[in-house]
Design a protein around this nucleic acid. Sequence first.
DNA 1: GTGAAAGCGCTAACAT
DNA 2: ATGTTAGCGCTTTCAC
Lengths: 340, 340
Amino acid sequence: MGKERYTIRDIADMANVSRGTVDRVIHNRGTVSEEAAKKVQEVLEKINYEPNLIARSLKAHKDHVIAVVIPDYSDDYYWRQCANGIHRSEKEFRQFGIFLQYFEYSKTPEDYNEKFSQAIALDPDAMLIAPVYYQDSLELFHRLEEKRIPYNLINTPIEEVAYHTFIGQDYRKSGRVAAQLMNALAPHDKKILVIHVEQHLENSTHLHEKEQGFKEFYNDHNITQPIEVFTFKEAQQLNDLRTVLPGTAGIFMTTSKTYLLADHMREHENIKVIGYDLIPKNVQQLKEGKIDILIHQNPISQGYDGISLLSDYLIYKKEVPKVKLLPLDIVVSENVDCYL
Amino acid sequence: MGKERYTIRDIADMANVSRGTVDRVIHNRGTVSEEAAKKVQEVLEKINYEPNLIARSLKAHKDHVIAVVIPDYSDDYYWRQCANGIHRSEKEFRQFGIFLQYFEYSKTPEDYNEKFSQAIALDPDAMLIAPVYYQDSLELFHRLEEKRIPYNLINTPIEEVAYHTFIGQDYRKSGRVAAQLMNALAPHDKKILVIHVEQHLENSTHLHEKEQGFKEFYNDHNITQPIEVFTFKEAQQLNDLRTVLPGTAGIFMTTSKTYLLADHMREHENIKVIGYDLIPKNVQQLKEGKIDILIHQNPISQGYDGISLLSDYLIYKKEVPKVKLLPLDIVVSENVDCYL
DNA sequence: GTGAAAGCGCTAACAT
DNA sequence: ATGTTAGCGCTTTCAC
């Protein structure tokens, strides 16, 4: 029961070698005679040695720099939450010698590429990237791979590149969840709308996947309710909905811009609305009953895990998963407080 | 940008005192002249000092024993999950000198008291307790307080005692969430049932709170749908439902025994069912459509956090919150895989 | 190829 | 009241 914990010194004594030799055996480095190695190995196995990680990490780590490339979050609640998660992790790992450098891009593909390049120029030990506009940046990713800089992706997966870990959600599943909920809430004798509000849809495969998943659910269950898809690049285009809303049972908004709908729905209060993200405007409308359900994309966890996984890798060389999928949290007005 | 990390030595230099004095000021122990204390305080505030917890814990590193008092989980999936969370945390903290002693009580108040006493007799450094039958054990809690043994509660909160942290859910909120979902799913022209399946209801204030929260939601929204409450001590008593089910729109089961309903509902497939916990039978029925929604009580997190918070406190003397509320996750068939 | 020794930052015991 | 110092267990240099 009283599992004793042996130290390097104990092992050295038992094997009649010096502490340095024990260390060399444990880490497979330096030069050790076969004889000594064998003796130490035997002791190690016999006592089932587990190193004291506290002591190990007390030893001065060399500093590591992680470059963080995310959208400017000065007036964007979602990305600010993500940044908060990053800050939290940064604070936790600072004493282990992890330092972050932030590169915030204003929301254009050009600036994204610009800031991404700057980050690479810094020659960091690792990178965390939110590749919202990924299309033209594939070349940059290849440069990272050439320089052997490990990088994690958050929020937007890119199949074509050799990222370390992707942290985000399964967007097809996400669409399916939305569909199941919509199907449970909305009358079946009217049409359903799927609405994307996104300036650069060509870059947003994940929105597409949500739509696919949504339709897939209806197909799988042989529900023949009409589903119409709209894509708006600008908020004001939502005016076009005026002629479409009559005869609509529910609306699935694929982005956090869900709150934009309310202004256009004053005479259609019974249309069910399902959208994304716990940004304040959405939360307020959820509480007011203008939005029925929000799917939570966990931006805080995305940021936190994104940095934590890289740090564990840099410091401890811990193995990391290729994909870390965050749960698809269903949020209604009564449980929204749990997630804020 | 490059946030420097200050050490005790740095502070000592800046304040022109010795490291010992700095330590004394930080920990409020020993004797320090006002003058010196002030100087050190100033420096501390100026640099926003954060101690290196690793170094701190490397020093002390005496072993700590945590006694764990939980229900026997040999044939109980929910408590097994909880135990899994505990094991995970145990593994993580073992190298930091944390050792657990388990006291599993068979599901009777007598054995609970018995095992609880045994645990105290061990004189552990801390305790983790799932006080399912708490009523007669208040005296035991007082003994813990006298002996100044810190303890965390999981799953069942007890207002009257001086626990360290409670880890679990807000049960009234939980009932409200269930009500909101029920209201969205079930037709309004039939009655709603609330069913408790629990041998010792007198001990289960949390089930009561779920019921209260459920009714509260209907009241708050002026919904006058009839709600009938049933309490069954044994599974077979569910037979009594036969006469009640006709004219029922939905059923809210307050425990993980939700799966028991299915056998009694063969001719009432359109009754909506909302229940608790991702135990295998429930999950299967969720996927089959026999259960519509499950609320996830996060037993793994309860166990994991219960031990982690105590360990952090014992090892690092970290501050801990009085209450750690876990989210009220809403689970349907399409997102259940995220939570398993 | 191996051992000895100097720290990492903090704490506590011991001098002064 | 305050300064000094010896470790905690591990890593890493530097002699031998």
